[in-house]
């Protein structure tokens, strides 16, 4: 037994240590200037069995559409995504109606002219500005970034977005804000070009959810997480089946290996 049990345990320890090490190294993002206050939230989609909350995604989409969309694009999303499984799952009639609200540029037509038409479910979301310069010109020189993968582009994405939305606090007396900037405890450096976008009662909720800043912040964060990872539910569902299969296979392989080695002293 000496030659099997102890090296095996040592090896397991070594592998575990290597994994933990890789994790610790990868999990230490560089700290930016200005301590960020990021509050950890409970999300329905976290954990191996996590799924999105349909109602929350639908409310989050409403917040995006009525508030964020004025400045921020979602260029990687298409209207059809809103009706696909694992997302807000709007009905196909609702998706068509939502798409039709958008003015999509198309063409050239037979005369060689570009024209606009109502959007179709296969169209991508239309960004609010024609290009970066137009966006900067309309926003005091600051560029409102596209939000398609924002929830993955920040460390602890959904928690960060939540904290940013809820992070507009009273400016401390000893801090002099630059022209047009707002104080935000979640933003690196605490000075953000975006004025507080949300407040209580900013968006009407029709499903009985309280129209508070807290709820808006959570809902928009969840919606943007879905926008960044539209296949999250599919991934978690397939992962569960895959893991069951692999664990059974590992058990069987272990038994076969033991059986094969049984006749040999080792």
């Amino acid at each position: 037994m000496r030659n099997i049990a102890s090296p095996k345990r040592k090896l397991l320890l070594a592998v575990a240590a290597a994994v933990l090490y890789a994790a610790s190294v990868a999990g230490t993002p560089a700290k930016a200037a200005g301590e960020q206050t990021i509050e950890t939230q409970k999300w329905s989609f976290s954990g191996p069995f996590g799924m999105f909350d349909r109602g929350q995604l639908q409310r989050g989409f409403k917040v995006y559409k009525e508030v964020c969309a004025a400045c921020h694009g979602l260029r990687l999303l298409r209207f059809r995504n809103l009706g696909e499984p694992g997302g807000p799952e709007f009905s196909s009639a609702a998706v068509k109606a939502l798409a039709a609200e958008a003015e999509v540029q198309d063409g050239p037509d037979d005369e060689g002219e570009m024209f606009t038409r109502p959007g179709r479910p296969s169209d991508a979301f239309v960004s609010p500005f024609a290009n970066k310069n137009a966006a900067r010109a309309a926003n005091n020189g600051a560029y409102p970034p596209d939000l398609s993968v924002m929830a993955k582009a920040r460390a602890r994405g959904p928690d960060y977005i939540y904290s940013l939305m809820a992070g507009y606090k009273e400016t401390p007396d000893d801090l002099e804000l630059a022209e047009g900037m707002s104080y935000n405890t979640a933003f690196p450096g605490h000075q953000i070009a975006m004025a507080a976008p949300l407040d209580d009662d900013a968006v009407e909720y029709t499903d009985g959810t309280a129209p508070t800043l807290e709820n808006y912040s959570k809902d928009i964060s969840a919606f943007l997480m879905w926008a960044a990872e539209p296949k999250l539910e599919e991934r978690h569902k397939l992962g569960f089946r895959f893991m069951i299969y692999l664990i059974i296979l590992a058990g069987l392989l272990y038994l076969v290996k033991r059986r094969v080695w049984a006749g040999l002293k080792h």
Binding site: P29, R154, H236, G239, F242
Partner: peptide, 11 residues
């Protein structure tokens, strides 16, 4: 891959 696909990546 299934549960923490971006864990080792940089945001």
């Amino acid at each position: 891959v299934f549960y923490a696909p971006n864990f080792l990546a940089h945001p």
